[in-house]
Design a protein around this nucleic acid. Sequence first.
DNA 1: CCATGTCAAGGTCAC
DNA 2: GTGACCTTGACATGG
Length: 295
Amino acid sequence: MKLGYPCINRSIGCTANKKFRLVSYSEQKLIDTVSNNMDCLSRILEYNLKNDLLFFRISSETIPFASHPICEFDWVGHFSPKRREIGQFVKESNMRISMHPDQFILLNSPDGNVTQRSIAELEYHCSLLDAMGLDSSAKVQIHMGGIYKDKKKAILRFVERYEGLDERIKKRLVIENDDRLYGLEDCLEVSGACNIPVIFDSFHHECLNKGEDILSAISDATATWGEKDGMAMVDYSSQQPGGRMGKHATFLDVGLFRDFLESADGFDIDIMLEIKDKEKSALKAIGIAKELGRL
DNA sequence: CCATGTCAAGGTCAC
DNA sequence: GTGACCTTGACATGG
């Protein structure tokens, strides 16, 4: 089992998701920004290794505007030594990497332009992971997308479009249950239709479910991961006390996480802690996992 | 220097 | 039909 956190580290004084406005785009600005992001990513990964945090989500903003038509720069070529160095570090340290394109990525949109832009964005994500030399266990997770007033058709459209994707995207893509539209059951149905792994989000499942308990949910999701996919990934969070239903917690609730780990006992999974204070909570989680003998 | 409006991208829901 | 919200940080401008 590996534990980790997404994209941002607030302890080491740099950010790996620096960006700029489209209006101020220039090749030099892109190069400077990406250099900064890559250097900081190295530092984050070094911090993570020292702290037994072997799972990390790389920010989608690592290469700003990578899939935008304005960007014609050969970033794969230009940053070749640095990204290979990072990839090497990841492999030597036995780390696990994921990425999570944001809400605009909608494979099943009825609007073909939206789908095309989404695929371009997926290509960028996969290119970055490819360029680091990571195998197919480094995943790119997305949600199912919208409903568009006809869920059955929207699901069929997803399956159809997924099947039409290049193998280099398919081997990395996984779907995650969301908190409003597509629950675990829907994701499992899609997985059955096109063999895509399901990444289980425990908090979204609390918000939207068909009454499945945590154990069977993790069991069903885990079963969709094949040998080449690596260990099943799980996203963990909990409700922010006093916050709107669905709001992620600011701090890790240690008791809840301990319960979660105990209920997931027996499953070899990699857990991403989607808690707002990032590495601080991840460190607490490491402590709990060690206490329970899970690490 | 600080406060605040805004940022590539879509979709759902409440009103 | 319109606007708030998702989730959220940080860029960039204007005082």
